[in-house]
Nucleic acid binder design. Structure first.
Lengths: 263, 263
DNA sequence: ACCTGAACACCGTTCAAGT
DNA sequence: ACCTGAACACCGTTCAAGT
């Protein structure tokens, strides 16, 4: 899909015309994959916005493009969404809304606070992996309040976090301290992972000038030689150990929290 | 400054006119604070770009605005910069370029790897504090290679990091492992800090409708009550302990690295 | 009630043209 | 060599108007 739908296209059929044309499919109307087009709702708008971001990156999420994909003009969106910023906020909210907080019903043996945090950490990691292009949004948009630290920026999640630790033996101040170190840990690791994952997504096309063969290395400053150590360690540096790193850092965080918890 | 310089403004004086007009000051020309206007260079452009970001946020950095601030039309910038993306990359490079790597000349006693990492960590933190609005750029722009992990995204810095640890007794693989955990640590803590710092900067003005007094809490979902724990811990959650948190987490990271270093 | 045409004030970017 | 006018293809957003 070239998506170069300029403003000088052949005019779309006037809306006054009978809609029983012989063409199989109206131009901009995206019938959703299950075949029926739901009416415009805020939920639907946000859902498609997430899809657009996943496919083409945040900068490709445009009111006009989003409208087109919903079979509607851009201005219609303003009935449901308070401008682009509000839309992005809603996208973040929707994504964070998929985070599951382990229930604090009857606690099983073996369901200590460590298992609680392990579960939560992996669920946030799942979110980051499912939406690598959107995760920077979750990570960097200004939180509305200091108790909504990215990437756990939702009252429901923060409540679940603090309550979950309280129910498993943490004091108030211990729970708050854990909240802070836990969010820092998640943010650092997951943002780094999603930066690598979502790397080659946005600038998908520009293989126009492939002809300059005088510089064999295409990167800006990749003339090594002044960087012997990096050069020597190029192999190890390029290896991907994200899984083990995450697990190990998480393990160490839990140990650290345990020290503060025990005292 | 209202900055509503639309395209239908009264025409600026034609360039053919004599420049000895009686007006004291040409409209868009910003003489820099030390009084003389240096010729256009890439360095100068990037420098002013950083200023613009610091003042009004990344989204306010516009080719046209940047040109105006340099006393030049936007198109002139394209002589020195390969479009906006390239400009942003140059901004990141300039910022990361201010990071100081402790010299590995003659090592003093007391200048172990711990002091080395302490010094470096605080210097990157200084950068984040000096440019809170620009730091998300440093943190989230796609690194050109896996060995350029944010926020240490510069060959010089990575080289200095690895070499610095090597010179202080780390093995190759220990240095690489330290590089990974150190960057994750910095990213998580500093991005969270700069998110809070740079919060109320960009959307500086919109106090137009202050009249809806029926909802006393202005935030989207700030009807507490369903969130008793957050409500109860509101005080502690709002406290700012960024300094202590950073120091403590750094200390723990060093301990953790020491375990791997010793074995 | 819900959507749109038309318009406005911006964007980034290119390129032929000016000096 | 360095800068710009004019133009193009986009943006977000508003609002009166359509159905």
């Amino acid at each position: 899909m070239r998506s170069t739908r300029g403003s000088e296209d052949p005019p779309t059929p006037a809306p006054g015309h009978a809609s029983t044309s012989t063409r199989g499919e109206r131009p901009g109307v995206a019938e959703s994959s299950d075949g029926h087009r739901p009416g415009l709702t805020r939920e639907r708008i946000v859902e498609v916005a997430v899809e657009l971001i996943d496919i083409d990156g945040v900068s490709a999420l445009t009111m006009r493009r989003l409208g087109a994909r919903l079979g509607v003009e851009a201005m219609s969106l303003y009935r449901y969404v308070n401008g682009r910023e509000d839309l992005l906020e809603a996208v973040v909210e929707a994504l964070v809304g998929t985070i599951e907080i382990p229930a604090t019903g009857q606690l099983q043996p073996g369901d200590g606070w460590q298992a609680f945090l392990q579960h939560l950490a992996h669920d946030v990691r799942r979110l980051a992996h499912e939406h690598p292009s959107a995760f920077p949004l979750v990570a960097t948009r200004h939180p509305a309040a200091p108790w909504l630290r990215p990437p756990l920026r939702s009252l429901r999640v923060v409540e679940g976090f603090l309550e979950g630790l309280r129910a498993r033996g943490f004091s108030d101040r211990q729970a708050v301290a854990a909240y802070r170190s836990f969010t820092s840990f998640l943010l650092g690791h997951l943002l780094l992972e999603s930066a690598v994952h979502g790397a080659a997504m946005s600038p998908a096309e520009e293989p126009l000038d492939e002809g300059d063969a005088d510089l064999p290395n295409r990167d800006h400053e990749l003339d090594l030689g002044r960087y012997p150590t990096v050069t020597r360690l190029r192999g190890p540096l390029g290896e991907d150990h994200a899984d083990e790193e995450f697990e190990e850092a998480l393990e160490h965080l839990l140990v650290r929290l345990d020290l503060e918890h025990a005292q």
